[in-house]
Amino acid sequence: MVVPKITWFSRQTALGPAIAVVLAIVIFSLVAPGFLSVANLLNVSLQTAITGILAVGMTMVILTGGIDLSIGSVVALSGVTAAAVAQSSALGGLIAALAVGLGVGALNGVLVAGFRVAPFVVTLAGLTMARGLAFLLTGGRSIGNLPPSFNLLGQGALFGIPFPVLLMIAIVGAGYFLLSRTVLGRQIYAVGGNSEASWLAGVPVSGVLMAVYILNGLLTGLAGAVLAARLGAGIPNSGQLYELDVIAAVVVGGTSLSGGRGGVLGSLLGALFIGILNNGLNLAGVDPYLQKIVLGAVILGAVMIDGTGQSQNR
């Protein structure tokens, strides 16, 4: 009997997405003029940065068998909060955004882990409530005129690499370390793989879920601040449908929606893949309406080809 071993790669489930990213780069280099330039690739990575940051938190949530639909709205809510506070203090703005994310994450966590409400329902409610709150706080208007020191978070660069991209890399690194090396990471996989067995093995299941939703909230808050800084304004209707982009990235990255299997490297590659596709199709002059159809089909295809997630779950 040939027994598949779990190796570094199969554990990350990142081989498929990596191939997809390489293929996409090769194809667009050939067909899309100007795709393969340093400036454009930096642009792609900047476009991907916020999705990438959000995908780390979402990966952890999905690994436990949950989902978070509220992140787009929370990005807007923390963005406008950050913009409001940043008028007086740039650092304060960042902290305020993180606090908003933390608060929403903790609330989600309490409802999911404490009251055992389905994550889909909790975060669906959060989706509309957070958006409503963002509009309520701003009266529907954008908050602009942010201090340059705050905007640096979204617009600055180090050695030519935009801050958001550096931030994304750091967070993916930290997420990878957390999931692969720490006790919490081990417990996240265990809870997602079999929550009752984990509980009987002494894993504090509620605590793990709580931690995951809080971490996800913090990252969402951070993404909100980064987005506000990039746009130079806190905009209450920003971040629409981010949750779908991020879930697509995580799923394309090989993380199983039923939990217990996947990782953040895959999600990063998934986010990159979708970013490259958006950018490349644009440069190749594909009709924007057609682009949406192609994107959907490619996501479906990528997940079906990767299919390992489904077969291993049986």
Partner: peptide, 28 residues
């Protein structure tokens, strides 16, 4: 239902009950 975490390795399944004895600052 109550025992194995099917997708994880033998090692991880075995160590799951005693991670608190084999960690340093939260790292396995």
């Amino acid at each position: 239902r109550q025992g194995i975490i099917p997708l994880r390795t033998v090692r991880e399944n075995m160590a799951l009950g005693s991670l608190d004895q084999r960690r340093r600052f939260g790292v396995v």
